[in-house]
C-alpha cells in the first residue's frame, strides 16, 4: 500500500470493517467533499440557447421541485463517492460504486427532456447489468483469498488475487460510470444544472481512480 498510494496516515477500524487514509485516498476524499459542498451551496445556472439562424436566444429554467430532487441525488452521490474513496473493504467499495451508479441515473433522469431521459434510461440499463460483474468480483476476492480487507491484501500474506477477479471489478466499475458507456453520453453531460451534472462526471472519475489502486493490491 505504501508503494502505491503512499504510507497510510490513519486507519479507523469498525470491527472487521475499516477505513484508511493514505495521501491518495485522502486527496480523492477531499475532492468529493469539496464538490459535495459546492452542490449544497450552488444554485443551477440558466443555460443559454441560441436560436438557429437568428439573433434570438433563450435561457432554460430549472423548476424548484426538479432542483430539490437533483440536489438530493447529487449529495447522495457525493456521500457514496466519499465512502468509496476511503473504504478499506472490497465489498463496501462495490456497494458504494453501485450506489454511485444509481444516483447518477437519478441526477439526470429528473431532467424534463426526452433526449436526456433516453440517455439516462440507456445508462441505467448498463449500470444495472454492471452490478453482476461488480459483486461477482467481490465474491471471487472473498473465495480466493479468504478476505475482503484491502489492508490484508496489501500485506501480501494472502493467496494472490486471480486476474479474473480484478478484471470483473474493472468491468463493473466501467459499466457503473466510465467511458465508453457513460462519457460518450453527451446528452447527459450537457443537461442544465451544472453543479449536479458535474457530480455525475466527478463521481465516475473518482471511482475509476480508486479502482486503479484497488486492483494493484494483492
Amino acid at each position: 500500500m505504501s508503494s502505491i498510494g503512499g504510507v497510510p496516515f490513519y486507519i479507523l477500524e469498525f470491527g472487521d470493517e475499516l477505513v484508511y487514509f493514505t495521501p491518495y485516498t485522502i486527496t480523492l476524499f477531499l475532492l468529493a467533499l469539496v464538490f459535495t459542498v459546492l452542490v449544497i451551496l450552488s444554485r443551477p445556472e440558466r443555460q443559454v440557447d441560441i436560436a438557429f439562424g437568428g439573433d434570438a436566444y433563450t435561457t432554460k429554467q430549472i423548476l424548484k421541485d426538479e432542483m430539490r430532487f437533483r440536489r438530493f441525488m447529487s449529495i447522495a452521490c457525493g456521500l457514496a463517492s466519499m465512502g468509496a474513496m476511503v473504504t478499506g473493504d472490497i465489498f463496501n467499495f462495490t456497494l458504494f460504486t453501485a450506489m454511485v451508479g444509481i444516483t447518477n441515473v437519478g441526477i439526470v433522469a429528473a431532467v424534463k427532456s426526452p433526449h436526456v431521459q433516453n440517455a439516462a434510461y440507456q445508462y441505467g440499463l448498463v449500470a444495472l447489468s454492471a452490478t453482476v460483474p461488480l459483486f461477482g468480483a467481490a465474491a471471487v476476492y472473498a473465495a480466493s483469498t479468504g478476505s475482503l480487507s484491502m489492508i490484508e491484501l496489501a500485506r501480501g500474506t494472502l493467496p494472490a488475487v486471480p486476474i479474473i477477479a480484478k478484471a470483473l471489478l474493472v468491468i463493473g466499475v466501467v459499466g457503473e460510470g466510465m467511458a465508453p458507456f457513460y462519457a460518450a453520453k453527451a446528452e447527459m453531460f450537457r443537461a442544465p444544472g451544472a453543479p449536479y451534472v458535474i457530480m455525475c462526471s466527478l463521481s465516475s472519475l473518482l471511482i475509476f481512480l480508486r479502482v486503479v489502486e484497488v486492483v494493484m493490491l494483492g
Binding site: I4, G5, G6, T22, P23, Y24, T27, L28, L31, F35, I198, S201, L202, L205, F208, L209, V212, E213
Partner: peptide, 15 residues
C-alpha cells in the same frame, strides 16, 4: 510522493 496522486489530479483537471 505517490505518482498516482499526481496523475489522479491530472485526470481531475478534466472535471
Amino acid at each position: 510522493g505517490s505518482l498516482l496522486v499526481i496523475f489522479g489530479i491530472y485526470m481531475l483537471h478534466k472535471i
